[in-house]
Design a protein around this nucleic acid. Sequence first.
DNA 1: GCGACAG
DNA 2: ATCTTGTCGC
Length: 227
Amino acid sequence: MPDARSGRPATPAEAEREQLRLRELVRPGPARPVRPARVAGLDVAYAPDDSVLAAAVVVLDAVTLEVVDSAHALGRPAFGYVPGLFAFREVPTLLDALERLTAVPELLVCDGHGRAHPRRFGLACHLGVLTGLASIGVAKTAFVGTHAPPGPARGDRSPLVDAGETVGAVLRTRSGVKPVYVSTGHRVELDAAVDQVLALTPRYRLPETTRQADRLCRSVLRARLGG
DNA sequence: GCGACAG
DNA sequence: ATCTTGTCGC
C-alpha cells in the first residue's frame, strides 16, 4: 500500500494505478495558443551510486532566453528505475525545487516524454498535473511509437504514432542533427509545443531550458559530492 | 517466448 | 542517468 504520509507508491503496480488516476486530470491546451512570458527547464542528475539526486529548475525569459530565476533541491530517488514509471523517481525532488522558485513560469519543459508514453502519462504530464502548470516533454530518445524520419532541415517534423494515435512529434531542431521527441504534457497542444521547442532551440539541438537545467543540476550534485 | 525499454 | 579520450568539423 502507498506510504500514508507521502502518498507515494511503493510498488510498480501501485505506481501504475496512480498514473491511471492522475491521467484523468490532464487537460488540453487553449485553441488559441498562449505565448508564455517565462519558460522553465527541469532536469535531474544522479550520484554514481544512485544514493542521491539533484534536481534543478531554471526559468528563462521566453523572448530573450536569458535566465531570470533558478532553484534546486537535493533528494533521494523515490522509486527504482522502471521504464514507464520513471517519473516517480524524480517528481518529489523536482517539486521541491519548483517550490523554491520566486518567478513562476507559465510553461514547464521537461526532460523526458509527456503523452508519448505507454499509458499516455509520462513525466511531463505528471509534473503538469501536479503543479497545474502547462507542460511539454522533450526527450532525446524514443520510448513508444513509430515514425518516419523527419526531413533534414530545422523545423522538419514527422508524427510519432503509437497504437494508431499521434502521441508526439519527432522534430529536427538543427539541420542534419538527430531529432528530438516532443510530446504534450498538460494544457498545451502538440503544435504549440513544437513551436515552443523551436523557439528554444536557436542554436543547439536541445532546448535552452533543458541545457541550463542540466548544467545547474550537475554542478549542484558535483558540489554535494565534493569535487 | 524474446527483446526493447524516457532518465 | 553514469562510467570515459580522443577526434572530426565549423
